[in-house]
Simulated scan of single mutants.
Amino acid sequence: MNQINVQEQIVARPASDGDGVKLLRVFGGPQLQRFDPFLMLDEFGSEQAEDYIGGFPPHPHRGFETVTYMLQGKMEHRDHIGNVGLLEDGGVQWMTAGKGIIHSEMPKQTEGMMRGFQLWVNLPANRKMIPASYQDIAAGDIAVHQLAEGTVKVIAGRTRVNDTELNGYFSIADTEVSYLDISIEAGQSMHITVPTQHNAMIYSYQGQIQIGDNRVNSKAKTLSRLSGQGKVVVENPTDSVARLLFLSGKPLQQPIAQYGPFVMNTHEEIEQAIQDYQAGVLTD
C-alpha cells in the first residue's frame, strides 16, 4: 500500500462575505486546480450576533454546487424556484446551482452560537447548465458511526475508516465526493482510505492532530492537502477530543474560470453569465 502524506498546509484566514458575515476562508482563489474538484471551503462560527446577523441576502450562482453544513445554529434558505428550508444543528444543504440560481441564506436567530462550513464543489462542463436543484437534509437522516476510536459522520461518498466501509447520505456521480466529519478521542488514531486517483484534504477545526506516516502536525484552523494513494493515518496525540473534516474527490481535470459566484470553463462563459444575470435571464 502506497504512503499518503501531507503535500501542503494552509492556515485559514479571516474574511467576510454576504452582508458582513465574518468567517474563515480555508481555501479558494488562485491555483484552484490543485484542489480539483473542490473550489472553496469557508468556516463560519461566532457567538456574537453582529458577526453573522447580516447573513447572505439574495445572490446568484452558476456552474457548481454548494454544500452548507451547520454544526450549530439556524439558517434559512430561500431561492427563486420557491424552495424554503431551515438548516439546523447538524443539518446539510446541498444545492446544485447548474445554469443559475438566485438564493439567500439568512440567520433565524438573533443570539447564541452559529457555526458551520460551506464547501463549493465544481460541476463538469457537460452539467454546468443543468436545471438548479436543492436538498435540505436534517441531522437525523445522516449516518453517524460510533467507532472505538471516535465518531464518523458520513455526509457524502463511500469510504473506509479503520477497515469499516461507510456510506454517506449523498452520492455524487461525477466527482465521487467523500465528505466526513470526524471526532477522534484523546490518544486514538484512525486510518482513512483515500480512493484511487482522488484529491484529498483534511481540515482540522478543533484540537490538534498528526497526519500521515511522517506525522505532520496540524493545529486547529489548518488545511492539509494530501498526496499519494492508499490509507492515511490520523492521530490525536493530545488529551482532548480532536475534530476534523475529511474531503476527497475525483478531479474533473477541466479548465476553471471563476468570477465571484460564477464558475465556468472559459472566460467567454463567465462573460455570458454576467450578461445573463444583468439581463435577468440567468435562471431561464
Rank of each mutant, 00 (worst) to 15 (best):
Y52M: 07
I53P: 05
G55M: 05
F56M: 13
P57K: 02
P57G: 13
P58H: 06
H59W: 02
R62F: 04
F64A: 10
E65F: 05
T66W: 01
T66I: 13
V67Q: 04
T68S: 15
T68N: 04
M70C: 15
Q72S: 14
Q72W: 02
G73C: 09
K74D: 12
K74G: 08
H77L: 12
N83L: 04
N83I: 06
N83M: 03
V84D: 02
G85E: 07
G85L: 04
L87H: 04
L87R: 00
E88R: 01
D89T: 13
D89I: 08
G90M: 00
G90Y: 01
G91R: 01
W94M: 10
A97W: 00
A97N: 05
G98A: 06
K99S: 12
G100A: 14
I102S: 09
H103D: 14
S104Y: 06
E105G: 11
E105T: 12
E105S: 11
E105D: 10
M106Q: 08
M106D: 09
K108P: 08
Q109W: 00
E111A: 15
G112P: 12
G112C: 13
G112M: 04
M113Y: 08
R115Q: 15
R115H: 15
R115F: 08
F117M: 10
Q118M: 11
L119G: 09
V121F: 06
V121Y: 03
N122S: 13
L123S: 10
P124C: 03
P124I: 00
R127H: 11
K128Q: 11
M129F: 08
I130V: 15
P131F: 00
A132M: 03
Y134A: 06
Y134I: 09
Q135K: 08
Q135V: 10
D136R: 02
I137G: 01
I137M: 02
A138H: 00
A138F: 00
A139K: 01
A139L: 02
I142A: 00
A143P: 09
V144I: 13
V144K: 00
H145A: 10
L147F: 02
L147Y: 00
A148N: 14
G150V: 08
G150N: 04
K153I: 06
K153D: 05
V154G: 06
V154T: 14
I155T: 06
A156R: 01
A156F: 01
A156L: 05
G157P: 09
R158E: 13
V161E: 11
T164D: 11
T164P: 00
E165V: 14
N167D: 13
N167G: 10
G168A: 11
Y169F: 14
Y169E: 06
F170K: 11
I172C: 07
D174P: 12
T175G: 10
T175A: 09
E176H: 14
E176L: 15
E176Q: 15
E176M: 15
E176G: 13
S178H: 05
Y179L: 15
L180A: 12
I182S: 07
I182L: 09
I184D: 05
I184T: 08
E185A: 15
E185F: 12
A186R: 07
Q188R: 15
M190A: 10
M190I: 14
H191P: 00
V194Y: 02
V194S: 14
V194D: 03
P195W: 05
T196M: 13
Q197S: 15
H198F: 12
N199A: 14
